[in-house]
């Protein structure tokens, strides 16, 4: 039950994107299409789970003062593994995410979880925490990218929705991303405050 709680909190109550406002750079930059959003979500979840397990295992052996550099090295290793595997098996996706795959390393969400959670708790709980956070991050990305792809490009998952719809380019460009996330966070604040 406790494990389930760790899992669920990342999905909604402590959603990294909407509630904690962490890891926003990749969220906004790659959310131009749903495929990109899913790819980034899965890659970040992989890094999150991998580094959380590892940090949790070695947490008692690392001197407190050098823990941040150690966490960064662990995270960077998982990021590079993800990057190499994406280049090998999904080259098109890897290209369209471009520099934002290596940038997962500075995603505050990943380091934040390592510092705030897995450096304090045993591996199993850390896995559930990481999975929950990863899933929360992924669904947020899919939602944002779906909104932007439909409104900005007139497609969903690359399929044309309606021929006569002339999409406003604005939504696929930077301002559209910022507006979408601003309004979504506002909406979620509104929903939670009403309850």
């Amino acid at each position: 039950m406790k494990m389930l709680g760790e899992f669920v909190k990342g999905v909604w109550r402590e959603n990294p994107t909407f509630r904690l406002a962490l890891g926003l750079c990749p969220t906004l930059a790659v959310s131009t299409s749903v495929i990109n959003g899913i790819g980034m979500g899965v890659a970040a979840t992989f890094v999150l789970v991998g580094s959380n397990i590892f940090v949790s295992i070695i947490r008692s052996k690392i001197p407190n003062k050098v823990r941040i550099p150690c966490f960064i090295v662990v995270i960077a290793t998982f990021v590079t593994i993800a990057d190499l595997f994406m280049k090998a098996y999904t080259p098109a996706l890897s290209r369209s995410l471009g520099m934002f795959v290596p940038l997962i390393v500075v995603n505050c969400m990943v380091l934040g979880r390592a510092e705030a959670f897995s450096s304090k708790y045993p591996p199993l709980r850390s896995i559930f925490d990481a999975l929950g956070m990863g899933l929360g991050f992924t669904w947020a990305l899919i939602l944002i990218s779906a909104i932007r792809e439909v409104l900005g490009n007139g497609t969903i998952m690359g399929v044309l929705i309606n021929k006569n719809f002339q999409p406003p380019l604005f939504m696929i460009l930077a301002p559209g991303a910022l507006l979408t996330i601003g309004l979504l966070i506002g909406l979620i604040n509104y929903i939670t405050s009403r309850r």
């Binding site: 406002a21 301002p175 559209g176 991303a177 910022l178 507006l179 996330i181 601003g182 309004l183 966070i185 506002g186 604040n189």
Partner: peptide
């Protein structure tokens, strides 16, 4: 946060 994003968008 939300209003900051909206301003950033503008």
């Amino acid at each position: 946060i939300p209003i900051t994003f909206i301003i950033a968008s503008l």
